[in-house]
């Protein structure tokens, strides 16, 4: 019988040798890819996320776990695509105009992807019109806006206003985050959610699409 706990532990420990090895074993044992994902890999990401929130794990451990998970998911991909498992949701993300910081955005993207989201990344210094145009053309559940500078925070408000003006506000939920951002700022500009870090972003994204 396959031991899912070992696979979970491999993800938590960022063990990039053990995780693909155990995933291969599970596939060879005939365990469906979705079960390997749900019982072995995702609980590992959840656990490391909890440790991160408590300050017991740091960014390098989070990154190592995500890379480990990525290597294992690559092995599951052929099976997953056969079973047509839908993504957790579609997320579009970018750093607002005037701000070219991308590390926070990239960490959020990484966490979302490892939690089953299909993520479209518009990059940094993204004008409001570009967000609107992408949302008009595509189908996304959530728009994530990132800013690191106090002076670029107002650009988040500009994006939300532009979405309203283009009649697109109801098409997508808006989540905001970044060093100067707070819940009260998110409320003030009418965002649907605020996340203080990447782990919280993945959690809140899940709850936003459940509503």
């Amino acid at each position: 019988m396959f031991n899912f706990d070992e696979l979970t532990k491999a993800v938590v420990n960022g063990d990039s040798d053990a995780s693909p090895e155990l995933t291969k074993k599970a596939l060879q044992a005939g365990i469906p890819a979705t079960e390997i994902l749900d019982k072995g890999l995702l609980p590992g990401m959840e656990l490391i996320g909890k440790q991160f929130e408590k300050g017991e794990a740091f960014f390098p451990e989070l990154l190592a776990a995500a890379n480990t998970m990525k290597a294992a998911v690559a092995l599951l991909k052929p099976e997953l695509s056969k079973s047509k498992v839908p993504p957790a949701g579609k997320y579009i993300i970018g750093t607002v105009e005037g701000d070219a910081h991308d590390i926070g955005k990239n960490i959020v993207k990484m966490m979302l992807e490892q939690n089953g989201w299909e993520v479209t990344d518009l990059g940094t210094d993204v004008p409001a019109e570009k967000f609107c145009s992408a949302i008009e053309k595509g189908r996304f559940d959530i728009l994530g806006l990132s800013a690191l500078l106090t002076i670029t925070m107002p650009a988040m408000d500009d994006v939300i206003k532009a979405l309203k003006a283009a009649g697109l506000r109801n098409k997508v939920k808006v989540m905001v985050g970044g060093a100067p951002i707070t819940q009260s700022f998110a409320d003030q500009i009418g965002a649907d959610a605020y996340a203080k870090d990447a782990v919280e972003a993945a959690k809140k994204a899940k709850s936003l699409v459940r509503r």
Partner: peptide, 14 residues
């Protein structure tokens, strides 16, 4: 070094 211009008034290093 990339300047972000109006509104941003900041620079980033790529």
């Amino acid at each position: 070094i990339y300047s972000l211009g109006k509104g941003g008034a900041s620079m980033v290093a790529n």
